[in-house]
Design a protein around this nucleic acid. Structure first.
Length: 216
DNA sequence: CACAGGATCGTT
DNA sequence: ACGATCCTGTGT
């Protein structure tokens, strides 16, 4: 049986963790999903970040230690799953936007209108629904062999990048930042049109974007 | 396949 | 008021 990734995996810079999460396995009870699309919500200076106005009851888990879930309700009806990164007090997390089904198709279908197709797992609200998560799960640790946890899988070198979805309220710099990452060659992604291939290696991408962070 | 519109509620 | 959204219906 797979073993949960340790807290040290999550306790790194948000965008680096976001890239590393592509292809990893998300496990919750009888369901296992392969992560195919993520978004990085970085330091509090990121004006798209829920932590941009400081600590509140809702976003408290995001300000805590890495390796915990931050689940919140969007548009009054959708639970969205984030994995907290960086160090305590950073206020950074990775939003899980899409996954491929691996194990538990019947249960996934039952939670997703009876269907398991790309359109039923591409979108952050759909992923949380397929995993059976709700806002009650916010703040739970990701490092125990129970509840929700992440298992290792090979790191991907080829990936797509693009702007994050639905953050028009942020400053232009953060609205346009390519902090949305996805697997190439999979149908299990949302909003593919605004994604483009990154042709250099991952280290070059991370180095360029870390520079943006430091300048901000 | 692309778009428009409604659902629905915690947070600010 | 307003979302880090989804589903359904309509029209190509």
């Amino acid at each position: 049986m797979p073993r949960p990734l340790p807290q040290t995996f999550f306790a790194r810079e948000c965008l680096e963790v976001a890239h590393d999460l592509l292809g990893k396995l998300l496990c919750a009870g009888e369901v296992i999903l392969r992560i195919s699309e993520v978004e990085a919500y970085r330091h509090p200076g990121d004006t798209a970040n829920h932590c941009r106005f400081g600590k509140t009851a809702r976003n408290a888990p995001m300000w805590g230690a890495a390796g915990h879930a931050y689940v919140y309700l969007c548009y009054g009806m959708h639970a969205l799953l984030n994995l907290v990164t960086d160090g305590e007090g950073a206020g950074a997390a990775v939003l899980i936007r899409a996954c491929e089904p691996v194990v538990g198709h019947a249960l996934i279908a039952a939670r997703r209108n009876g269907q398991v197709a790309p359109s039923s797992l591409a979108g952050p609200g759909k992923v949380a629904a397929a995993l059976g998560l709700s806002v009650r799960d916010s703040g739970r640790p990701l490092t125990k062999r129970e509840g929700l946890y992440v298992c290792d899988a090979p790191r991907v070198d080829q990936f797509l990048i693009g702007p994050r979805v639905g953050v028009d309220y942020a400053t232009p710099e953060h609205r346009d930042a390519p902090w949305r990452l996805a697997l190439p060659d999979t149908r299990w992604v949302s909003q593919r049109k605004t994604l483009r291939p990154w042709h250099l290696d991952a280290a070059a991408f991370l180095a360029a974007e870390q520079r943006v962070t430091r300048a901000a």
